[in-house]
Amino acid sequence: MSAAHALIAALRDPARAGDGDWNGLIAAARAEQLIGSLAYRLEGRDLPEKVEAIMEAARRDSAQARIQALWEAEMTRRALAPLGVPLVLLKGNAFHAAGLDAAIGRSVGDLDILVPKASLEAVEAALIGAGWERLKEADGYDDLYYRRWMHELPPLIHRTRDRMIDVHHTILPETARPKPDAAALIADSVALDPGSPPGAGSGLRILSPPDMIVHAAAHLFADGDLAGGLRNLWDIDRLVRQFVAADPAFWPALAERAQHHQLRRSVALSLRLAARLYGTPVDRQAAGPDRVTDRLFAARLLARNGWGQPVRPALRLAFYIRSHWLRMPPLLLARHLWAKARS
């Protein structure tokens, strides 16, 4: 059993953690950014003293990362409040702000937000007025690349807090084949704590449950070469379990939204992978029939050994090329690789 297999087994069933090699499990969990999630799954279990100390530190670190993530969202809310535009938190920040199960131990990096495309310039100006600045003197090509082809502004960083923000106007690059309906994502988004006083998170929004799954699936396949995919798939497992328990009509709603955003295949594949790796209870109709290639995706996600090293280089390369192909039409890819090679 590879360390990545041991990791998913421990997340599924904490009683199985440490069957074999704790060092391998911890290294794989850190490499996949799942150490915080694992630490909470193992909370309260009878663990070897050293393992308990490592898990306790991971939980403390997660708790602090959560505070920072929520604070960054709150400062963004304050900066954008005068504009009166809808401000939708995405990914980890949304999970934390809404207190979803997926947030438990979830690491958070940059703050990702979604705003209407028509408000992009005003949002950028307001952020810059409130202490965010361009990451570096963006070189002309990169800046143009972002603005023309990506689904976000070039990243901004806050001058004193040293935290990055990615402002998106949709959830996939404009070059990608599926064209999600960004206006519908925002229209159906859900306000956090609508009744609470200003300053306690009001004004912040998150995607509706079906759209959140659609976005997580799009993010899993379209963003990068499936590196870090185990964590993204764990998000999907946690979200699906919680949404299904809360709403009996969740599956038809998901099917409708996946179709609407042209992401039915990504959603189906991510549901099959979540079921295969994490035992997620999925609706057979939404997940579709198993395909031969599912096995390759699963193998790619589990390509990590007990030293935390990525393994199976040929498979990873294949997925890397595929990921660039997915994101850009071939001619654009050639131009991009040419510009990168010259810089």
Binding site: P48, K50, V51, G308, Q309, P313
Partner: peptide, 16 residues
């Protein structure tokens, strides 16, 4: 040290 370590360090070739 005991069997469980706090941290793993790897020294590996930059390219194979």
């Amino acid at each position: 040290p005991g069997r469980v370590c706090d941290f793993t360090v790897r020294l590996e070739p930059e390219k194979p």
